[in-house]
Design a binder for these strands. Structure first.
Lengths: 190, 190
DNA sequence: ACGTTCATGTAAGCAGTTACATGATTGT
DNA sequence: ACAATCATGTAACTGCTTACATGAACGT
């Protein structure tokens, strides 16, 4: 259901399915991704429902493209989705479930390495986002608060990503320290 | 794939499918949930694969129960899952995608109310987690660092939830302020 | 008798992934 | 000639949700 609305949102400019897949990677991809095999049928259904309309156009390189444009009904649909408020449907965080059960592993060393690797993974993501932010700060005039709306709201998602990842790295770090303390306590009492 | 491992983790004590569904609600439910219609066939497959074994037992109230126990192979499987490191498979955060497109709504008032409602929703969740933490702090001796492993690691997930939600509430609050500033700037220039 | 909780399942359908099929154009 | 990129799709499968079917025990 959500992919429909996301594609609708991405089509503020005309684009083909292939184009849309590319834009996922660059930007939105941080919190949503979709495969071409899912994008194509979804675009078709949106057209059947009158929210998009397509035109075949020759490509500059490669075969013919099918370029989609949002209709007035499509824009209304997008606005309605946004006006209805945030869709906070259940997150499924596998790695947190793993943390929950980590005590059953038996070996605190495994738990320790789990958190060290998780921290590194979050830290790498954080470095990636920081690089994006620096580029924005240098290249985009008026960054961040004088950006036009269509860049300001994406910036807000970047801002949250930065804070969330920093919180996660700090949490992993605290977990490492606390587990080390438990390991020390265990050997001391033995 | 993950539900298999999660059920395996939950079965440190023998339990029926019905029992497991109840425990989701109380604890793990904050970052994972599953329906009975998914739990029953998954338990059956785990038994077919030799990771669980079941015994029919009379219930104290109601019909006969099917109680599952983890086999040695099941425990090995769980440990292997945990030792393999964190599974950070792609989050899909619909509400963040909505924020991304909020600039296309046209009406900054809609964006403002979007963030106000989102902030309230996060704040309510945060209050819920804080209540759980206070109860733990009062009722569990040694909370948090002297808890036994099987309670310490769940506590870590609570700790992260607290920090993440606090960060989200603060972010929403900053978004509200910044959007109000944009609205003021727009009316001033008009 | 009737509703609630306890208890286990099946069936239909949707969302998403992986694998496969097809073919044009460009660069080496 | 061959690989890479461009471009659009279909098919099979997995994970999960919603709806349905069945029935025992308990309280009122």
């Amino acid at each position: 259901m959500s992919l429909r609305n996301i594609l609708l949102g991405m089509l503020s400019q005309p684009a083909s399915g292939y184009d849309l897949k590319q834009s996922f990677g660059e930007s939105l991809g941080h919190f949503w991704d979709a495969e071409l095999s899912q994008i194509y049928p979804t675009l078709k259904r949106l057209e059947d429902d009158g929210l998009l309309r397509s035109k075949r156009e020759p490509s500059e390189k490669g075969p013919e493209r099918k370029v989609y444009r949002r209709t007035a009904a499509g824009t209304r649909g997008l606005k309605a989705w946004l006006a209805a408020g945030a869709e906070r449907s259940g997150e499924r965080l596998t790695w947190l479930a793993q943390v929950w059960f980590l005590g059953q592993q038996g070996d605190l060393g495994v738990a320790l390495s789990f958190f060290e690797r998780l921290r590194d993974s979050f830290a790498a993501d954080l470095a990636g986002l920081r690089a994006i932010e620096e580029r924005m700060r240098e290249e985009e005039p008026g960054y961040p608060d004088a950006l036009p709306d269509e860049m300001f709201f994406p910036h807000l998602t970047l801002d949250l990503g930065l804070h969330k990842l920093a919180a996660k790295v700090a949490w992993c770090e605290r977990c490492v320290v606390r587990i080390e303390a438990r390991m020390a306590a265990a050997t001391a009492s033995a």
